[in-house]
């Protein structure tokens, strides 16, 4: 346990040192928010429960920000680290590899928090979104928790993909999960087959959970169950990948 915390401390240090990465990851979703808000700042209702576009976009960009942070912090950085030789350097130490996986997942989750808060701040200031104080806190926590599958997905990509394949895979996933999950446009505006497909994606259910909070309702059970299914499934995949790699030599 102390080795885990020790390792985590140095991962935080490494994260802070990579400020360029942080700046882009945190700045990306708010920039999108302001761009997409455009002239639709008015109270145009786009989703059930009289959710306006500016509210919808806030939740969508929180979700998209978590997606980007999870994929790049986990996938991109981890793949680069493995190629750079540091993952091997760690494997020859007594640090258990599961703590490596845990710390990497936690690091991705940590990056998501400022992403969410910044989108909320800009939504309130620039997009005139108004929520009760308790709602803001609830929304922050819900959006953060829904980021877990994205963090795990990133770590899995980092483990499976090489550094050359990681980036195309990340880009494709950002598009697929972002667009088809309804993060750029409400799913209700999509043709029916796509609407059905959206219900299979964690990005859709993450945003749906956030929209429930905006509507003043608890997030739906089906949203939580789908997200939990993804979280459990992805961690099983990471664990499996991990075990198969363990005895395949250092090269």
């Amino acid at each position: 346990m102390s080795a885990l915390l020790h390792f985590g401390r140095f991962e935080m240090l490494r994260l802070i040192r990579s400020w360029k990465f942080l700046l882009i990851t945190v700045g990306f979703p708010v920039t999108f928010y302001m761009l997409f808000l455009g002239d639709r700042r008015s109270g145009e209702v786009v989703a059930a429960g009289s959710v306006t576009w500016r509210e919808y976009l806030m939740v969508a960009m929180c979700s998209f920000g978590c997606l980007v942070a999870g994929l790049t912090a986990g996938g991109g950085r981890l793949a680069a680290e493995r190629v750079g030789g540091w993952a091997r350097q760690l494997r020859v130490t007594p640090l258990p590899t599961w703590s490596y996986v845990m710390v990497k997942t936690a690091t991705s989750m940590l990056v998501m928090l400022p992403v969410i808060v910044l989108v909320e701040v800009v939504s309130a200031g620039f997009g005139d979104v108004r929520l009760a104080a308790g709602r803001w806190i609830e929304l922050t926590l819900v959006m953060w928790v829904t980021g877990l599958p994205f963090a795990e997905l990133g770590v899995l990509i980092g483990f499976v993909a090489g550094v050359e394949t990681a980036f195309p895979v990340i880009t494709a996933l950002m598009f697929v999960l972002g667009y088809f999950g309804g993060l750029f446009n409400p799913v209700s505006a999509m043709p029916s087959p796509l609407r059905t497909a959206a219900h299979l994606l964690p990005s859709f259910h993450g945003a749906a959970a956030g929209l429930s909070v905006v509507n003043g309702r608890p997030a739906g059970l089906s949203d939580w169950l789908t997200l939990a299914g993804y979280a459990v499934g992805l961690s099983a995949l990471v664990a499996w990948r991990h075990r198969t790699e363990e005895m395949k030599g250092l090269a």
Partner: peptide, 27 residues
């Protein structure tokens, strides 16, 4: 055991002392 690997590792963010302190904490 200690293992000195053949290829060098590229660590862009830490100093020499920090890398040594980090690994020291695992033993």
């Amino acid at each position: 055991m200690g293992v000195v690997l053949q290829e060098l590792a590229v660590e862009p963010f830490l100093t020499v002392r920090q890398a040594l302190r980090r690994n020291a904490g695992y033993y």
